[in-house]
């Protein structure tokens, strides 16, 4: 049924729940978006197909990309070493190209917990996680994470032992980070696909931990 509204539980192509219908009055900034896009087409700078392709490319980037990288790093010591040495190259090899940016993998261990933030704006490892969630771009997260990471973590329900070192990595326009969460116990015999299902978006930002099986 085309007007059946029971579809709110379904996920969009980018793996997010659909938003409510977007049929509010046309805003000034929406008008500008349409105008800019049409002018770029009229001036021969882009085409409608190029815009649609770019949206499709971005929609295809979801935290499942990052989860595959983490699961492989947990399972394959050689890949783990390559990822820690040069994460841009190691993720490019899996088809998740970060382009000219530098990507650094930081690994959580029994002693150390890593978190990522962009205090200046919203820089994020888009090739592995897709577009950043709203809270990542908020004043509160940007301001407080470098000042009081443990209280920020507590708001996400993560409490770490007192003697765990917390390292916060501030991303820049040219340099991004990805957190390799600690591999949960009891996963020794799991396949890469099973492991990937334990790796959440927040565990790769450092505001969460991997799920336990």
């Amino acid at each position: 049924m085309p007007h059946d509204h029971h579809d709110h539980d379904h996920l969009s192509p980018s793996g997010h729940p659909y938003r409510a219908d977007d049929d509010t009055d046309l805003s000034y900034w929406q008008t500008m978006e349409i105008a800019v896009r049409e002018l770029l087409v009229e001036k021969g700078i882009t085409t409608p197909a190029e815009v649609a392709d770019q949206i499709e490319t971005m929609d295809a980037r979801t935290p499942s990309n990052g989860a595959k990288v983490v699961a492989r790093a947990w399972s394959d010591p050689e890949y783990h070493a390559a990822l820690m040495k040069d994460a841009s190259a190691a993720t490019r090899e899996m088809g998740f190209d970060i382009g000219p940016l530098k990507l650094i993998a930081v690994e959580n261990t029994d002693d150390t917990h890593n978190m990522i933030v962009c205090t200046l704006c919203s820089c994020y490892p888009r090739n592995l996680l897709g577009l950043p969630p709203d809270w990542y771009k908020s004043r509160a997260y940007r301001s407080r994470t470098v000042r009081e990471p443990r209280s920020v973590l507590a708001e996400f329900g993560v409490t770490l032992p007192e003697n765990t070192t917390v390292r916060v990595h501030d991303s820049t326009a040219d340099m991004r980070y990805i957190v390799i969460p600690k591999r949960p116990q009891g996963t020794e015999n799991m396949s890469e696909d099973e492991l990937a299902a334990l790796v959440t978006r927040d565990s790769m930002i450092g505001t969460g931990v991997a799920k336990t099986p």
């Binding site: 205090t119 200046l120 969630p133 809270w135 004043r139 301001s143 470098v146 708001e155």
Partner: peptide, 11 residues
Amino acid sequence: GGDTAGPIPDM
């Protein structure tokens, strides 16, 4: 970065 601020919104 380093400023004080309220709770992380809406997570």
